[in-house]
Amino acid sequence: MEMKRVMLTSGAEATIELRDGIILKSRAPKRYRLKEIDERLRRERTKIEAKLIAEARKSGVPTPIIYDVMNCEIQMEYIDGVQLKHVLDANLSERIGELVGLLHTAGIIHGDLTTSNMILAGERIYLIDFGLAYFDQSTEARGVDVHVLFQTFESTHGGHETLIKAFTRGYRKTFKDADDVLQRVKEIESRGRYRTERL
């Protein structure tokens, strides 16, 4: 039987391949960096990613189902939908806020919350690419997580203030420490070099 193989994306982190309806995410070696650094990062990130995808799902955040993990490759469910960066609006941003709130309640930091890493499939928003995710319950880690998303809103989407406001609404709904984190986000923003609006 002939296998159907399609290369979906070659992202910065990994290559995503669709093989017989299953997603294969593999972290190919990066030639630009030293082998020692490369192997350390790829191995650690693959193992942690698989674990976190499963944990996030348990906490109520739609993520792909994991089928298998080996070396630097994860086999998981294929989510057929559209990246949020192409369809983002305030309503969706509020729902992102709810999901990130659930994630943070479960003690999970995504680590790369961009609108490229969210897929709208039917009625559900799936979070994908947990390649930089980790467990952490600190306000700081949660703040950086949200800060990254706000940076994406600002750098890639128009009307980012509305999107941020909508996100905040959703985030507060599902996460009791939301206000502490949002306060920290402001402080983190002021840390980048030369920010004029200091707290």
Partner: peptide, 10 residues
């Protein structure tokens, strides 16, 4: 380089 590559991809 990692962050630069991610900006390129994004």
């Amino acid at each position: 380089v990692e962050v630069t590559e991610r900006a390129l991809a994004h």
